[in-house]
Design a protein around this nucleic acid. Structure first.
Lengths: 122, 122
DNA sequence: AACGGAGATTGACGGCTGTCGATATTGACG
DNA sequence: CGTCAATATCGACAGCCGTCAATCTCCGTT
């Protein structure tokens, strides 16, 4: 078959150009998604915001239950999710449990987001 | 009861101090969580990253199916979620559908995150 | 007009998630 | 040591989510 009779010219210009720069790895995507899942809930965002709004970025559970308007077990559950995600820390002093923001945790998330998801290739 | 005999010293110092600065509103939390939910999935993060890795931050669906390793309907579903969240746009040219990053959409997310969730109060 | 391919939609299903009430645990106090 | 208050844990339930196979729609080609 002659080369100049290949059906290349009739094909409407291949759409598939693999990529110009490497994408995020499967592993990194899973890890980043894990943290984002912890953030992707209105109640948890409010909890984080409430903690951040307190002196020293630290708050006791009893400060949080009433503003978010959820039951105590539910608030405790959300705080555990945030703690497991490494976004806040738990410090039990006597009867009360104090939760504080982990410095830089949120910046780390936004940094990773920007590192992989900006349209750097013009 | 004399003031100096108040049970202040024995009580472990009230834990409940409401807040020093306002927290995120319920409405803003719901909206931000909506966008974060769209981001909080490994497959969607990879799709966004793949689109960003292409020339012009634009990619055809056929460029995306094989790298993410999911079925075509599933990829189509994820792209719809990202589109509905305002993170990418769809542009059908002929038979192919091209998806492109919405400029500034991701920055908006990180900005809102930082605005409400940084421990500004020392 | 019929064919073929790209991609969207539908329907179904298993698993995860947010929520609560009830209960267990833990530390302070009398 | 018994009681009380603050949190955590458990069990259950409804609803959402990610995934796929099957099907539909639309457009370009023959």
């Amino acid at each position: 078959m002659p080369l100049d009779l290949l059906p290349v010219s009739t094909a409407p210009a291949a759409c598939c150009t693999p990529a110009t720069s490497p994408a995020i790895t499967e592993q990194d995507a899973v890890q980043l998604a894990r943290t984002l899942k912890a953030l992707a809930d209105p109640a948890r965002l409010r909890l984080l915001s409430l903690i951040a709004a307190h002196d020293g970025a630290e708050a006791c559970v009893c400060d949080l239950i009433e503003p978010v308007g959820l039951s105590q077990p539910t608030v405790s559950h959300h705080l555990k999710v945030l703690t497991d995600a490494g976004l806040i820390t738990r410090d039990k002093r006597g009867v009360w449990a104090y939760f504080a923001l982990v410095p830089g945790a949120l910046e780390s998330v936004t940094t990773h987001l920007g590192a992989h998801l900006t349209g750097s290739a013009a």
